[in-house]
Design a protein around this nucleic acid. Structure first.
Lengths: 198, 198
DNA sequence: GCAGAAATTGCAGACTATGCAAGGACTGGA
DNA sequence: TCCAGTCCTTGCATAGTCTGCAATTTCTGC
């Protein structure tokens, strides 16, 4: 730990700005608020706002949790079947997301109406996907197979969040289970070992 | 056909603008060119440019081909196994994309360096995905399963284009086959009927 | 050829985003 | 406790994006 204090302050301010951005955006959309308003609400100057985030959309999305090294390691060294290990990874990630449900809900709302925000998130997810693909390569040998699995992971997370947002009284974990079920079912249908024709 | 002439002109101009946008963007990125330059190169005023596209990124992406009704119908009424029908859909779509390889290559380059463009494309794909999900619902009954399959379709297309861009001397069709193989392999690994542990 | 519809354009103005340079705050060591 | 260096913040200037409005031109169908 070299710069714990400065770093911490920075993270706090970054989060502060994200919260202010999201709260303002809840009224009439992210496009309806100016960077000036956001900066004022965050207690910093407009110029400083741009030192923290390159644009409002990035500020709204913030810095979502990434997969930890332990999670990826667990994937590399097979502990169970591939399916159970992936499910475990997903469970862990969804649990991390659950810690900030309020933020997640607001981010979801922004994503639904803002293309640029989607693009930024897509870029973040793409980076995650590449890391995951790399980790999975140690296990499945074929790169395209690993890429396909990694894609399933990130899109499952997205789908679970989407479902959770639209279903009243459904926890994030429950939504994940439903989406996971769909993924497994789809895999079964596409799998060549499945001879029944549908 | 009510307004065929006007409509046709409009499409031509839209394509003209897309081409001008992409060609200018090849030099030093989409961010390196102004809407003014694009408009001038397209032979229209800046204001008119914004009548065709809401922003440069949308102009660069243009209006990519969508799935046709026949394609979706073929999916609904099972002609072969689910896997072969989906593969056929993909083949047809990739073939349509092949008609404009030059555009596709330039779009790919833009997408790699521009978040907003990615977001817009992501939005387009999301719409396609929703349509596909609906069509697949007629076949697999479970909505989550259908959604998972639809997601596989759109992300397979994206992955195929990505692979094609990065591999010299590989046709789009060949790239699709490679990615498809990966998807099937991944499905096999996730499928519960596959008992071997990996 | 004409009347009405549609598209184009110029202009004004709000907002986003970046470079630069001055000033202020914080850190670690003496 | 104080100091020097570094990092952060800020204001200002400026380039560029995008929209609304109204005038003008172009096109369509009759």
């Amino acid at each position: 730990m070299k710069l714990p204090l400065r770093e911490k302050r920075r993270q706090e301010t970054a989060f502060q700005i994200q919260k202010a951005t999201l709260e303002l955006a809840m009224k009439d959309g992210l496009d309806g608020v100016t960077t000036e308003e956001i900066a004022a609400a965050s207690g910093v100057s407009t110029r400083t706002f741009f030192n923290y985030y390159p644009n409002k959309e990035a500020a709204a999305i913030g810095h979502p949790p990434a997969f930890t090294e332990e999670q990826k390691d667990a994937l590399r060294k097979a502990e169970g079947t591939l399916a159970t290990d992936i499910k475990q990874l997903l469970d862990g990630h969804i649990e991390a997301l659950s810690e900030k449900e309020d933020i997640l809900r607001m981010v979801g709302k922004v994503l639904r109406s803002n293309e640029k925000a989607r693009g930024i998130l897509d870029g973040n997810l793409g980076a995650e996907r590449r890391v995951l693909t790399q980790a999975l390569c140690d296990r499945v040998s074929n790169r395209q197979t690993a890429a396909s699995l990694a894609n399933s992971v990130t899109s499952t997370i997205g789908a679970a969040i989407f479902l959770w947002e639209h279903e009243e009284d459904m926890t994030l974990g429950a939504a994940l289970d439903v989406v996971w079920e769909g993924l497994i079912d789809a895999s079964r249908l596409l799998s060549p070992s499945n001879e029944e024709e549908i």
